[in-house]
């Protein structure tokens, strides 16, 4: 360090120094960093086990320096259930996209939440299938164009975008649900705070914790990263509002 300079920003030690495969502007890299900062700050690297999905973040284990399992498409909640039940004193998270968590794996998601499985869902909702090249997701907005809804999503045939945070907050044994985003530095900090809260509630054994990140996909949305932030504000947040949907009662915490 040069004299007179102070180090105020660095990569957390729990995030491996490997060039990420994510597209420019994508929130995955931001959320990875937030997640690993929380693991470092809480000093829980030895106790943390993650589950990767099938989707853009299928290689998350290349970057996150914690033990990880790769699940079949949609089955991360069942895999995380198996891990957490065998090792109840560890901190377990699943990291899933919208196709994984809200389409092919809806049954696993819903039932893990209903049982109140004591792990944390980190749900990256970008409204599109990024990895397979921009097809319609269960969370694609009404009228939004994708390669499989080239004329815009039609609710008459494809239904409305599914609101997972709202749905899972209905389950009694789900402790904490928050929808966050990373479109501004302030929101990114909120995302980090939400992850930390979720892990703390998990350590207290309060039940399922669920963080939905209203995310972007400049490549799939066919726009620049900056335009994707505008799209979030103008179209995504009005339908998928940010905020806390459920929190443990004060006396429990």
């Amino acid at each position: 360090m040069k004299k007179g300079y102070e180090l105020i920003y660095k990569r957390p030690k729990t995030l491996l120094s490997k060039r990420m495969h994510y597209c420019p502007g994508c929130f995955h890299s931001t959320v990875h960093k937030m997640l690993m900062e929380v693991v470092e700050e809480m000093d829980i690297q030895e106790k943390t086990i993650g589950v990767c999905p099938v989707g853009c973040s299928v290689f998350a284990y290349d970057y996150l320096d914690v033990d990880m399992q790769e699940a079949a498409h949609g089955r991360a909640a069942a895999v995380a259930t198996g891990i957490k039940r065998m090792l109840p004193d560890r901190i377990v998270f699943s990291y899933q996209g919208d196709g994984d968590l809200a389409a092919i794996g809806t049954a696993e998601t819903i039932h893990a939440c209903n049982r109140g499985e004591n792990f944390t869902f980190i749900f990256i909702n970008n409204g599109i299938y990024g990895m397979t090249g921009g097809q319609m997701a269960p969370t694609t907005l009404e009228g939004q164009k994708t390669t499989t809804s080239p004329y815009g999503r039609k609710p008459d045939t494809a239904g409305m975008p599914i609101k997972m945070a709202e749905i899972v907050s209905l389950f009694e044994r789900v402790a904490y649900v928050e929808r966050v985003s990373c479109n501004t530095p302030a929101n990114a900090r909120k995302t980090k705070r939400a992850i930390r809260k979720a892990f703390e509630f998990q350590m207290q054994g309060l039940g399922t914790t669920f963080i939905e990140v209203a995310s972007n996909c400049p490549s799939g949305w066919k726009c620049t990263p900056e335009e994707s932030l505008n799209w979030l504000k103008e179209h995504v947040f009005p339908y998928f509002p940010l905020g806390v949907f459920k929190e443990p009662a004060k006396e429990k915490v």
């Binding site: 079949a72 069942a78 895999v79 198996g82 065998m86 696993e108």
Partner: peptide, 26 residues
Amino acid sequence: YVLIQAESELAAVNMLYGSSGAGARV
């Protein structure tokens, strides 16, 4: 032992995956 009546055989076999990966006899 841990016993879960899963929501489907699909979930059951994936719980088996997670727990076996966590080192358990399942």
